[in-house]
Amino acid sequence: MSFHAPDSQVFSNQSRMFGLIGHLTSLEHAQSVARDLGYPEYADQGLDFWCSAPPQIVDTIRVKSATGQVIEGRYVESCFLPEMLAARRIKAATRKIINAMAHAQKHGVDITALGGFSSIIFENFNLNQIHQVRNIKLDFHRFTTGNTHTAYIICRQVEQASRKLGIELSRATVAVCGATGDIGSAVCQWLNARTDIQDLLLIARNQERIQQLQDRLGRGKAMTLEEALPQADIVVWVASMPKGVEIEAAALKQPCLMVDGGYPKNLATRFNHPAVHVLKGGIVEHSLDIDWRIMNIVNMDVPARQLFACFAESMLLEFEKWYTNFSWDETRLR
């Protein structure tokens, strides 16, 4: 008699689950995905429809670790679209996030990452004030912004890519655009505490928050983007801006490493210059294929293995069985 259970049996015995809350990038994108997935009724609908569309679990995910541990997860499509913010349908936008969270909780998901705009909306509109959603009492311990892992990955990208490009951190000036945000301030703290970068330039709109960050770091020069770019060997982009900025390669130092971890992407320009290196920030790659469909839809380069680091955070918490809102209020990166 063998005690070796087939994969599916091992699987069905696991009751714990991780979750990812995501959304599509535009109305047009949503319509084309609806058509591709075989929902023509939804494909013809405009923004009004998406403002009242319910959240859906659209994918079941299995991840196997290098050691053979298997975890299971759910992908919750919130039906949020960035056009809701542009059209000032703010209440609809906030409802999407809250309803997607309630949906994940109702389906027994233990730890869910808020991807893309979800965590930005949650924090910006203080959705932590909302506890009751229909007949569900939201349990915030089940949710994480994923910002800790995103910030960590961006820092590691800075360290590794700079080495590859021959940029010595001890002689490098690093500019962080969006420095006072949750991810930005974590990146600044990591670079300050764990690397020997020469100079740190802080770019953000709110002067008071820059001052607080400078006090915490004991260093950092506040600057405008235009002032900072010509001085920076490395630029980390983690700002929340409605559309990407256009930059001339001539305005940059050469070589220049840029890590774009913004959501949506902070850089609108595609550089065709041998000394300007742009990395997609905050994206990780698993060592084995992941059984899911959703990353095809969000246009990853290697859809079977690549994912947003915020999503990876909920998978890591699931692998470690840490059912806690790991990145909440602020990241844990120190």
Binding site: P54, P55, R89, N99, K106
Partner: peptide
């Protein structure tokens, strides 16, 4: 918007509980 959304959520959950797939 909110009324339609709430209706769709609760109605969809009921259909799923009855046995319809996603």
């Amino acid at each position: 918007d909110a009324l339609v959304e709430d209706f769709m959520i609760t109605y969809g959950e009921a259909l799923a509980n009855i046995g319809f797939n996603n």
